[in-house]
Simulated scan of single mutants.
Amino acid sequence: MPVTDVTTSPEDLTIRIVADFAHPVHRVWQAHTDPRQLERFWGPPTWPATFTTWDHTVGGRSLYHMTGPKGEKSYAGWEFLEISPETRFVVLDFFADENGNEVEAFPAARMELNFEPTEQGTRMTAVSKFPTLESLEQVLEMGVIEGTTQAMGQIDAVLEGLREYAQGKGTRVELLSDTLVRFTRLIEGPRELVWRAHNDPDLIRQWMLGPDGWEMFTCDVASSAGDRYQYAWSPVGDTEGEPFGFDGELLLVDAPVRAVTTERMTGMDGPATVNDLQLHEEDGATLVTTVIEYPDKQARDMILGTGMADGMEQSYARLERLLPQV
């Protein structure tokens, strides 16, 4: 994780976050001043940001919203107060309504981002100054530190480029918290095709099989939010094992970028996981990112212990071989 230090000062009414990057200042600055790059890491993993307005000039405003796993939206914006290229910028950081108007119940903060070169690359220091202790406590209770730390954990893929970040590294597993796990896999192929492979039953049956020796005998795909889906597999030939399946509800769909579903093993009681699939394309390759929220740490560790990551890698490798034939 790039975040190396977080300091909260009730006396100064500030939150200070330090992040270190193995990239030069101009590259880190670019990622923070290009809205298409910024929105790939500014929101937490399950609340990605979308910048709808971007005026990076003194006095200009930028508006964005973050979209939750059920389609909930949280609106916010920046008013640029100072800009020193590749050195610092200062904004008035405010919560907004859907029309971009500031929300008075959440007083705006003054946020200053400083970029300085280091021997390893760049250090970014972000200091947010709040008008009152109450407003500081409000954002702390909302989980701003945890959210910012998790959000910044996504920036490496942006700074490095998708191939350098993920090519040849297989399915990567990152524990984001006691209940959140991120899986990433680079697939050689355009996003539209990868999305189709996740939603076309004929294609799903050819790659979403886990280890060799299994076949999918049920593939009921959900296409609209609120629809139910069900997948089921059975062993073939000499493969040992019992048929099993998963089912759930499609909570959110934003083709060809994002799909959020619940998931539980068919016939089992207990809380479901929430699986957040997001696709990002760069130069003909697509990074498949799935963030899974488990009900608790025990469930997380038990499910990871089944070897699911190995099964995902075998499926993704099969998908990569399939795409050139589609």
Rank of each mutant, 00 (worst) to 15 (best):
P2L: 06
D12Y: 00
T14S: 01
A22V: 04
P24A: 07
V28S: 03
W29R: 08
Q30G: 09
A31P: 03
T33F: 09
T33E: 11
P35N: 14
R36Y: 07
E39K: 13
R40E: 14
R40H: 14
P45Q: 09
T52A: 13
T52D: 13
T53V: 15
T53W: 12
M66L: 10
P69A: 01
K73Q: 10
G77W: 08
L81E: 10
P85K: 01
F95Q: 10
E98D: 15
A105K: 09
M111G: 02
E112T: 12
E112W: 03
P117D: 03
P117N: 03
Q120D: 15
S128L: 11
F130A: 09
E137D: 14
G143I: 05
G147Y: 09
T148G: 08
T149H: 05
M152T: 02
A166G: 08
K169H: 05
K169P: 04
E174P: 03
L176R: 04
T179E: 07
L180V: 06
V181H: 11
F183E: 04
L186K: 06
E188K: 15
G189P: 04
R191T: 12
R196I: 04
N199C: 10
N199Q: 12
L203F: 06
Q206P: 09
M208R: 10
G210N: 04
G210T: 08
C219N: 11
A225M: 05
E240P: 01
G241F: 08
F244E: 11
G245Q: 07
G248L: 04
A255M: 09
A259R: 12
E263D: 13
G267Y: 08
P271E: 13
A272T: 10
T273W: 01
L277V: 11
H280P: 00
E281H: 03
G284R: 05
A285Y: 06
V288P: 00
I292E: 01
Q298E: 14
I303Q: 14
L304N: 09
A309F: 09
A309W: 06
Q314C: 02
S315P: 04
R318V: 00
Q325D: 10
